[in-house]
């Protein structure tokens, strides 16, 4: 653990050195670029809140990818799972607008989790029934989910009062932003208690994986299917459960993005959180607690780089993405660094 932190730190240092070099090459003062990035990510309570806000959905999708990974499955489908799951949660809120928040929100999340989980489960089931590889099926399921969601949003739940493809707003029984304690603490950054839920979920997933029988079976399957089988672990059952849980985790993005901030489902609200979740999980080596940190790193870098375009003369939006990625790659290399490893 301490080792991982030190390595991350080393990676950050090298990454920022690289970022400084790039800034210098394009004719920007490296120090100024660093300053902009730092202030943009941590400079004020509001800015810090935004960094956390960006991190929250990545925790959910990172956990989704990680659970599947532990079962030996590569879940490329978090994007589709979160789209359908989030829309389901939104629909629930639209169907039952007057439930009390204490009942409505958990039920909406639960409904979203069931739908998102179902979408994940399909890939597990197909692998079982037809032997189809989950990478292919989850990618295909992403396309199908995108089509379903866009049809539902534009044709069925389209808000009558706006032109853009989005649903009507959920009632204030669900959209509790004004009363959200985190929203108030962070000076009105769109952060919400979804962050606390995400942290709790990460701990829960860790406990599930490392302390319970199901987690043991998931990890055994992921490490060696033949050994799991001889040990009496049903690979088919465990695989389907793992994919369901993965889809459910992804669906909770709705808590941060819809219940917590937007108050409605906007088509294309996710800037590929599902795919970024893969990087988040890999950087954390699929450790649920590590995912909290790696998601935060992604969030803070995203926020930090976002302002470079506006604040500096030469660092364009594209270049800010380069800088962001460079730092992440440096961290990824540092974390996997082993002493004396040769080619």
């Amino acid at each position: 653990m301490k080792d991982a932190l030190l390595k991350t730190l080393a990676g950050l240092i090298f990454g920022f050195l690289g970022a400084a070099l790039i800034s210098w090459i394009v004719g920007e003062s490296p120090l100024f670029v660093m300053k902009v990035m730092f202030e943009s990510a941590f400079g004020s309570v509001y800015n810090f809140g935004l960094s956390l806000f960006y991190a929250t959905p990545l925790i959910f999708t990172g956990l989704s990818v990680a659970i599947a990974f532990h079962a030996g499955l590569f879940n490329i489908g978090a994007e589709g799972q979160l789209a359908l799951g989030a829309l389901a949660a939104t629909c629930f809120a639209l169907w039952f607008p007057s439930l009390s928040p204490w009942l409505g929100i958990p039920l909406a999340l639960l409904f979203g989790a069931i739908i998102g989980g179902f979408w994940g489960w399909i890939a597990g089931w197909l692998k079982e029934k037809r032997g189809s590889h989950e990478v292919i099926t989850t990618i295909m399921l992403n396309f199908i989910a995108a089509a379903i969601v866009s049809w539902l949003v534009t044709k069925v739940y389209q808000s009558p009062i706006v032109q853009s493809p989005e649903t009507a707003e959920i009632s204030e029984h669900y959209f509790i932003q004004e009363r959200d304690p985190l929203y108030q603490i962070f000076d009105g950054a769109p952060i919400s208690i979804a962050l606390l839920f995400a942290i709790g979920l990460a701990i829960g997933v860790w406990v599930l994986l490392f302390k319970t029988k199901l987690g043991f079976e998931i990890r055994a399957l992921g490490k060696s299917e033949s050994t799991a089988e001889v040990s009496g672990i049903s690979s088919s059952k465990v695989r389907q459960i793992a994919m369901f849980l993965a889809g459910a985790c992804a669906s909770f993005v709705s808590f941060a993005e819809i219940i917590g901030s937007a108050g409605k489902y906007r088509l294309g609200f996710s800037p590929e959180y599902g795919f970024m979740g893969i990087a988040v999980a890999l950087l954390a080596r699929n450790n649920p607690i590590g995912i909290l940190f790696s998601a935060f790193l992604f969030g803070a870098l995203h926020k930090g780089a976002a302002d470079l375009d506006i604040e500096t003369e030469f660092v364009t939006r594209d270049l800010s993405l380069v800088i962001q990625s460079l730092i992440l790659i440096a961290v990824a290399i540092a974390i996997e660094w082993k002493k004396g490893r040769r080619a």
Partner: peptide, 9 residues
């Protein structure tokens, strides 16, 4: 190796 153990456990 293949059927009875998990080497990195």
């Amino acid at each position: 190796i293949k059927e009875a153990v998990i080497l990195d456990w």
